[in-house]
Design a protein around this nucleic acid. Structure first.
Length: 727
DNA sequence: CGGTAATTCGTTTTT
DNA sequence: CGAATTACCG
């Protein structure tokens, strides 16, 4: 194929990004500048024009969805030849490597992949072994810390060595114990998938050499989101041939909390002195007002500002709606959608609502249901995380990897079979004392002739387990699931309950069965892999997220977090909950870096909009069941007035939007300021309960004088006080 | 041991 | 407000 066939439709910069095939290349791709397009065409160019064998190319993304999309588009350009190119996520790529070479590290190829809850369970077990009560030592905090260590590429030994204070020492000890437990269970957590791969490459250069020969051209998408270990992994793979192309946008770095380090992209040029840099600054997605407003927000961050331009002129101004409360906010959004759908003939799929936290989806769901507007919540409670689905999968995991203690624990007495927590505790002690797996400990207890009733129950379970282990090995994923659900009595137990919930669960299991069937069918032509279809299925469910399964549908409004929205675009976007404490989120306002990341998140959300962008905030919202007050986000005041329609602190209501208020609206109609009137009883997180005496100022600087029951009169800034209604 | 009732607890974002 | 742990009784 000649170059023109592949690069024909690209602009000069995009074209350049494809044509610089050798050596390190950094592509700075602003929002909506055709980043995916470049990746796709670059890969096609490498294979189609330069004649690089497809097997020599590795393209790494963060989500399976991005990988799938890219694969599809490359295939469209190249045809079947594209099949040899590996387009995969960091995690899937590493699983692939480890499934092949992990024995070097002393683990078995059948290792389990622990998700967050398995991992948390293992932390709890580690805490038990270290005699640290979960009351004062929160498992979640340790898990988080361990995760950060893993993201930074720190192994337990180094964590122990570098720990100075007692707290760090304790965390490092938990980390070490945790890692030992994982090893005993023949399991790796998410962080390990990358970390252990770099460890493998580090300790076994001959293994690394093999992969270096294999992947001579490496591309990394969303490079601004890479963490230290991922950086290290990429470096290991490309240090020799140096054919590395990274694509990203520092302004869209929103995963710092997960260990991502923007410096990876900011310092790429320093890191590779001979690197070429291409900037994509032409935006093809959004109208001018949207672009200007988004740029205005993010330009409040230090560093070079986002330079994006568009040829598109005109376009609606960005609209701001200040709602009374979360309900009002949701009703406003849904009414806008319903009206636009009716009057402009827009499909529901043209609309998306982005929020900061998953919990916010609720009020929108309620409002959408009320008006019969079809919608899809993306993310949130994931399918594979539902209890019944996890149970079914836990059976398969335990059967395939008998060392998998977390899976075994889950299924041991599920359905109830007379093996209670006393037995489990005894088994755990045996396992710990003899340094063996939970399953072996259970066998030991079962073999005890003096074990009485519980030993008999154990023998019964173990017999079933062993029989199933043999059967399941030969079965396809859907067959295996069906067999397990049937033989264990799990399904029967569920059906016997005959409650609405249990029926929903049965339905979910059916869905799982269907999903497993689809997977099997899609994988049927793969030829005799070393690994069974069932094993591949379990890998897939461990690494797949809800977003990956999400197909943008033309007939549904999409609801998701701003994080999930990255990489997507919609004609009409609502970015909601723009309040201090929410966006920026209170947990991120500790340091400047946190605020800057929130600002970028806001930018990401705004730049998803193609034609029309709405920003909303509410002065009052329900949180934890009780009412909390808030003031508009600082990000709103960072947008120049002239770009906004509907100013702050205005008392615009639905009526101003040319719509009738909802029937039951009158109750909520009270102005936000009225809610904080003198006499109101409030609760302050530190000062406790008190009575509002006086209101001082308005907007972001609004203060209240409050007489607190315990500490007397104080003046607090509403914006930071996180007041709740105490009545 | 198993199920239910009571209580406590917490929310950021996720591969 | 809901999930998730704990308390308690049959």
């Amino acid at each position: 194929m000649n170059a023109e066939q592949i690069l024909g439709g690209l602009n000069p910069e995009q074209r350049q990004a494809c044509e610089i095939t050798e050596g390190p290349l950094l592509v700075l791709a602003g929002a909506g500048s055709g980043k995916t397009r470049v990746l796709v065409h670059r890969v096609a160019y490498l294979v189609g024009t330069c004649g690089i064998p497809p097997e020599h190319i590795l393209a790494v993304t963060f989500t399976n969805k991005a990988a799938g999309e890219m694969r599809e588009r490359v295939e469209k350009l190249l045809g079947p030849e594209a099949g040899g190119i590996l387009v995969s996520t960091f995690h899937s790529t590493c699983v692939r490597i480890l499934r092949r070479d992990v024995p070097h590290l002393g683990l078995s190829r059948s290792f389990a992949i622990y998700d967050e809850s398995d991992s948390l369970g293992t932390v709890k077990e580690a805490l038990r072994r270290l005699d640290l009560g979960p009351k004062q030592f929160e498992p979640r905090r340790f898990r988080w810390r361990i995760d950060q260590w893993k993201n930074a590429g720190v192994l337990p030994a180094r964590a122990v060595d570098t720990a100075v204070d007692l707290d760090a020492k304790r965390s490092a000890a938990v980390y070490a114990t945790y890692q030992k437990l994982l090893e005993e269970q023949n399991a790796l957590d998410f962080g390990d998938l990358i970390l252990q791969t770099t460890e493998l490459f580090h300790r076994f250069p001959e293994v690394l050499a093999w992969y270096r020969r294999r992947w001579q051209y490496v591309l990394v998408d969303e490079y601004q989101d890479t963490n230290r270990v991922q950086y290290r992994l990429v470096k290991q793979l490309t240090d020799e041939h140096r054919n590395l192309c990274v694509v990203g946008d520092p302004n869209q770095s929103i995963y710092g909390w997960r260990g991502a380090d923007v410096r990876n992209i900011l310092e790429f040029a320093n890191d590779h002195p001979d690197a070429k840099v291409v900037k994509l600054e032409r935006n093809y997605r959004s109208t001018r007002p949207i672009l200007d407003a988004a740029s205005a927000v993010v330009s409040h961050n230090p560093g070079p500002r986002a330079e994006l331009w568009t040829e598109r002129e005109g376009g609606d101004p960005v609209r701001l709606y200040e709602a009374v409360d979360d309900r009002d906010e949701a009703q406003f959004v849904v009414r806008q959608i319903a009206t636009a759908a009716r009057d402009e003939g827009r499909a529901y799929g043209d609309f998306a609502v982005f929020y900061r936290t998953n919990a916010q989806s609720r009020s929108f769901e309620e409002a959408l249901l009320e008006l019969d507007v079809p919608y899809a919540v993306v993310g949130g409670v994931r399918f594979y995380e539902r209890a019944e689905v996890k149970d079914a999968l836990a059976y398969l995991r335990a059967l395939l990897n008998p060392a998998d203690g977390m899976a075994l624990r889950r299924i041991l007495n599920n359905p109830p079979r007379g093996i209670g927590k006393a037995t489990l505790e005894r088994a755990e002690i045996v396992a710990q004392e003899e340094g063996t797996t939970l399953l072996r400990a259970l066998r030991r207890l079962g073999d005890d002739p003096a074990g009485g009733r519980s030993a008999a129950k154990l023998r019964e379970f173990l017999a079933l387990f062993d029989a199933l282990a043999e059967e399941v090995a030969e079965l396809s994923p859907p067959e295996a699931i069906a067999r397990v659900l049937d033989r264990t009595g799990y399904l029967e137990h569920l059906q016997r309950q005959a409650t609405p919930e249990s029926e929903a669960r049965v339905e979910n299991l059916r869905e799982l069965l269907t999903g497993a069937g689809d997977f099997d069918a899609a994988n049927a032509g793969q030829g005799p892999d070393e690994r069974s279809s069932l094993e591949l299925f379990l890998d897939q469910v461990a690494l797949v997220s809800d977003l990956d399964a999400y197909e943008g549908r033309a007939d549904r409004v999409s609801l998701m977090t701003a994080h999930t929205a990255k990489g997507l675009e919609y004609p009409v976007v609502f970015l909601v909950g723009l309040e201090e404490g929410l966006l920026p989120h209170a947990a991120s306002t500790r340091d400047a870096g946190g605020i800057e990341e929130e600002r970028r998140l806001c930018y990401v959300g705004m730049t998803r909009a193609m034609e029309r962008l709405f920003l909303t905030c509410a002065s009052e919202r329900r949180r934890y069941g009780s009412r909390t007050f808030s003031v508009p986000s600082r990000f709103l005041s960072e947008i120049p007035r002239e770009l906004l329609q509907g100013g702050l602190a205005s008392t615009r209501s639905l009526r101003d939007e040319g719509m009738e208020p909802a029937l039951d609206y009158s109750l909520d109609q009270s102005d936000a300021d009225d809610a904080l009137r003198p006499g109101l009883r409030v609760r302050h997180p530190i000062f406790g309960t008190g009575t509002v005496m006086e209101r001082i100022g308005a907007g972001a600087s609004q203060k209240l004088r409050i007489r607190f029951d315990r500490v007397g009169v104080k003046t607090v800034l509403v914006r930071f006080a996180n007041l709740e209604s105490a009545s």
